[in-house]
Design a protein around this nucleic acid. Sequence first.
DNA 1: AAGTGTGAACCTCTTCACAGCA
DNA 2: TGCTGTGAAGAGGTTCACACTT
Lengths: 211, 211
Amino acid sequence: MTAIPVKTIERLSKYRRVINRLLEKGETYIFSHDLAHLIDSTPAQVRRDLMQIGHTGSPKKGYELKQLKENINALMDDSDGQGIGLAGIGYLGRAIMNYFGGRNPKLTIKAAFDTDPDKINRVISGCRCYHIDQIPEVVKKENITIGIVTVPSSAAQDIVNRFVRTGIKAIINWAPTPLQTPPDVFVESRDITMSIEKAAFYAKTLNSKKK
Amino acid sequence: MTAIPVKTIERLSKYRRVINRLLEKGETYIFSHDLAHLIDSTPAQVRRDLMQIGHTGSPKKGYELKQLKENINALMDDSDGQGIGLAGIGYLGRAIMNYFGGRNPKLTIKAAFDTDPDKINRVISGCRCYHIDQIPEVVKKENITIGIVTVPSSAAQDIVNRFVRTGIKAIINWAPTPLQTPPDVFVESRDITMSIEKAAFYAKTLNSKKK
DNA sequence: AAGTGTGAACCTCTTCACAGCA
DNA sequence: TGCTGTGAAGAGGTTCACACTT
């Protein structure tokens, strides 16, 4: 058996979100084409993804939602839960804290780090703030395994080095700069400038196509 | 000649950013392996990308930076400039306005839209705020061709419909919900939950690998 | 000698198409 | 009949490997 494709992992996160909504509404089964519609994908893609995680359905009723949710959880969640540490309490950091807080019971933002003395030791958006020098102790104490970087570009590499040194193995970087990390660290970069410039290019292209 | 791959467009945005920095430092030429290192890519990838846009270098000196910048601009920029409209003035909206303001001379956030009366007609992060009912007039007046959506999920589809109705052809969506759009509209979705859950999965996987 | 330009191989992911099943 | 499960084909993107250039 080969590893599950990255793109499938991404979609499993989306499936789970809509499945939770469906279960709350009292639904029990779903067909691949309906699930596909809800995450803006295709029926063949859904069937292929569920095949990857070994979930099977029936031609008559489709996929059983409760079981499917459990199968996705079993693959994606750590049974002990995982902590998240966020560095950089600006607008972007606060947006993420507000948005993500309490959304996933196995995944909690446990600590925010900054250098601004006005923020340290306060609780902002439900999250305790610490000085970045406290990263080693707090990461250990709170079982933090994921680091979020929302500091300015100039500070990003330093923060990442601190995270990596304490053993963090996955980083999400919103600073518009590439990072040096060891090969066994997963880095996801979300580059805002790049997104906007890409959209601008396609806006231009699509506009020039109209007759 | 076939179209330029999406991934190449993404990297061209990154090349341009580092080229601007190099030009400011007075550099004039660069080799593919050095440029690759700066955006965390490979020499073969750089040569392939520059081939796509018809830029050529010399074995002796590499690629001429000023000319390369101009070639990327010629492909990516609209000579008249393009306006951006942002809907949803929360933390995330402000983060984007602050970060992106003045960064690209051909690409300006011209207007922010919200429904909160306290924000309307004020200038926030250097950007004039309007009520969302004013989208049609402001989009026309300011030549807005790109829409950024940072409203809550429940409001996202309505905002997108308003943008699409005024002729906007490219949308960047930060709300964690799929959008219904006509096929000739480019949509880029930046799903924060998905990013974090993906990172959590790889954190778990990488941690269980250590002996 | 040390780089570029590029056909071809390779890899990853998506879609097709159809056998099998309830 | 209308779905699922899946081998095979296709599309898109990356890397290899080497002829060519200075």
